[in-house]
């Protein structure tokens, strides 16, 4: 069964029927937002049943759209958290990817600014590596980008999309080591993105992120995960009641090959390891449960089939 990421947007009235339908079809709801009279469901559903959900949702004023970023956690890496880089463009981009279903976290570097003085510390590196993809938002000068990128990319293992002021071709030429995606003409600016060409640029960033993530999905498909992170999310939600008391908007954040569990590692790591998924297979057998560098959260990394010889 191939699961595809979609967003369902409809009225609150009878929306529980849609939730039941998705669950009955074997899909997973990643996030549910209730905004006034509207409900937004970000979910994974079987590919063959998308039309069925669309047909059943239609009388309820429901709308189904493809959301390739659902189920991904994106690090938006800002060179600092000063007024120079915030709220534009960092927040504009972080908010835009969130609208399309991704869970975005902003990583503000301690010393990302400048040319000679730029640096990346171990905490920043580890936090970026906990995401599915990192979007680096750089400045406007070629010289600075060329000079500091080798330092800022040191130890980064996740795919990176670089956004900067120079043209895309220039970025492709100057950024060393080479990264997976480039978006040019989006450097530092001090106004809100509201003009049509600026919004087109945001769409270009999304397209680049989607392209890079699709390549990652293809790579993952060659050696499938032992269990889908979305399924793991459902299992944890059912068997660890403490997760229901977490006030964070996404207590369980689904990633492409894992899950972030927003519970303290010391107390809950062992509990998670012992949870049975199916037929005596426990989470600890098919996934690595590690402490996250983000607060005291837990990061669950699902191992691939080639390591566990199990797919459930």
């Amino acid at each position: 069964m191939i699961l595809v990421p979609i967003t369902y947007r409809g009225g609150v009235y009878r929306h529980s029927e849609i939730i039941d339908l998705i669950e009955d079809l074997g899909g997973y709801i990643i996030q549910k937002h209730m905004i006034a009279q509207e409900v937004v469901l970000q979910c994974f559903v079987p590919k063959d049943d998308v039309e069925l959900i669309r047909a059943i949702g239609k009388p309820l004023a429901g709308e189904v759209t493809d959301s390739p970023l659902v189920g991904t956690e994106i690090a938006v890496v800002s060179m600092s958290l000063e007024i120079h880089h915030l709220p534009h463009p960092s927040c504009d981009i972080a908010e835009y990817v969130r609208r399309l279903g991704a869970k975005s976290n902003m990583v503000g570097m301690a010393r990302g600014v400048g040319k000679r003085i730029a640096g990346l510390n171990d905490e920043e590196r580890d936090i970026i590596n906990e995401h599915d993809i990192a979007v680096y938002l750089l400045g406007n000068f070629e010289t600075c980008i060329e000079h500091k990128m080798p330092v800022l990319l040191r130890g980064i293992e996740v795919p990176v999309v670089v956004c900067g002021g120079p043209d895309k071709e220039v970025l492709q030429r100057i950024v060393e080591p080479k990264v997976e995606g480039y978006v040019g003409n989006v450097g530092r600016f001090m106004h809100r993105t509201k003009e049509s060409e600026e919004l087109t640029k945001l769409d270009e960033i999304i397209a680049e992120i989607t392209r890079v993530l699709s390549k990652r999905r293809e790579a993952l498909a060659k050696d499938p995960l032992s269990v889908s992170p979305a399924r793991l999310m459902d299992v944890i939600r059912e068997q660890v009641p403490a997760i229901l008391t977490v006030t964070s908007p996404t207590p369980l954040t689904v990633q492409m090959s894992g899950l972030r569990v927003k519970l303290p590692y010391d107390t809950y790591a062992e509990v998670l390891r012992k949870i049975e998924i199916e037929d005596g297979i426990k989470i600890g057998d098919i996934a690595d449960i590690e402490p996250s560098r983000m607060r005291d959260y837990i990061i669950v990394r699902v191992r691939p089939f080639s390591e566990t010889n199990t797919v459930i």
Binding site: N140, F141, E142, T143, G165, P166, D167, G187, R188, F189, M190, H191
Partner: peptide, 19 residues
Amino acid sequence: TEKLGGEYYRQIANDVLLD
């Protein structure tokens, strides 16, 4: 010294002074 960078900084200066 960088043409494109200069254009962006002109826009930044304009935005900041206006704000």
